[in-house]
Nucleic acid binder design. Structure first.
Lengths: 204, 204
DNA sequence: ACAAATTATACGATTTTCGTTATTTTATAC
DNA sequence: GTATAAAATAACGAAAATCGTATAATTTGT
């Protein structure tokens, strides 16, 4: 009742073209009428589903939020060794933050406080998800039990910063090499003694 | 004098950021004040150099026009076999038209007639350049003398159409393979009997 | 210290965008 | 067919953004 929006054709059309245009140009540069025109939906029907452009953009971001969290969850539930999951998560975090950077690079920031809210929500939910994940890793004996999940989460957060820092770029200009270096560094600090598998190997 | 604009720092700053923003979002989406702010130039100085946004955009396009023609000319004057030059020109045409497509994909079209003028100018100048180039090729005996330059120009124009046609994509999904195929086809129709060099080779 | 160039600010005029209204068209069920 | 719901169209005033300009203050170069 009332929420039959989600499976409505016109609603989906609007969301899809909105996502496309907003991701490309930012919310401010795109007009409602432009979205309607491209989605082949009249302005009237637009206002049936959304109060204004802000609400539309917020829902687009909300969908993005769900997608990202689902992807994280999927990685965590893959039938692969725990270490591989960690790598998967880190790679996904990097990929995600790059994507988000593209979207928010422009003026989306200052456009509305809703977007700040979006980030806080995403961070918080992602935080819980990964926190549980780490505890699981500790139970499996892959991650040192003496480390608090909060510390590891902080480490992951800093990981991205370091990866894109000028310092690291100077040390390893090639992105792949840099990533490998950082993964290596992180793993040999986190992972229990002789658990090291294939990809992240030291010098030699 | 009075055209001392070109070497003016502020002028260049405006042109550079304008190029960047306009190429990314299209003229309509970008505001004068935005360009000024990013270029770190006051609005007043903007109006010292440009009458309005249209004039700015036109000059940006004009610069682009010059760049493209110069690149064409450079390719033609490389110390390489004539056939290689042709390949270079065709590659450049493809690259260029893709770049222009990106720029004009949005609403730049309908924004002003100046942009139509830009295209016509570019086409005309490019036409002359390539026409002379072909005549030179005929004198060198690389291109069959019985072919009129106009015919070859038309062929080149169609070349791009064909390259991106669904028909050709079905035949050769891989872009590189498709390009090679088309080059091959074109050359063996155009080039004098046994002149074929390395890259464009038939079947075998 | 002077002159020239650039900026900052403010402003009215114009244009764009918004959100709503009344009306017509289209699709769907009866 | 007709009735009913959903959507499209056109028009509109209100609000906001953008434009282009005028003025005074500031910075820059000499």
């Amino acid at each position: 009742m009332g929420e039959t929006h989600l499976d409505n054709k016109k609603y989906q059309d609007l969301m899809n073209t909105a996502r496309e245009l907003i991701f490309k140009h930012g919310t401010k540069r795109v007009t409602i009428e432009e979205i309607c025109e491209k989605a082949d939906v009249s302005k009237m029907t637009f206002y049936k589903f959304f109060r204004n452009k802000n609400e539309l953009a917020t829902r687009v971001l909300s969908e993005l939020n769900d997608r990202i969290l689902k992807e994280q969850d999927d990685i965590m539930n893959r039938p692969i060794p725990f270490i591989e999951k960690i790598k998967g998560i880190i790679n996904h975090l990097i990929k995600t933050s790059e994507e988000l950077e593209d979207i928010f690079l422009d003026e989306m920031w200052e456009y509305s406080e809703d977007f700040m809210l979006f980030f806080n929500t995403l961070k918080k939910e992602s935080y819980h998800l990964i926190s549980d994940f780490i505890k699981q890793g500790q139970q499996e004996g892959v991650i040192r039990k003496t480390l608090k999940p909060e510390v590891i989460l902080y480490l992951i957060e800093k990981f991205q910063e370091m990866l894109n820092s000028d310092r690291m770029k100077a040390i390893a200009p090639d992105p792949h090499e840099r990533l490998d270096l950082m993964l290596n560094l992180t793993f040999y600090g986190i992972i229990d003694s002789k658990q090291q598998t294939g990809t992240a190997q030291q010098g030699e």
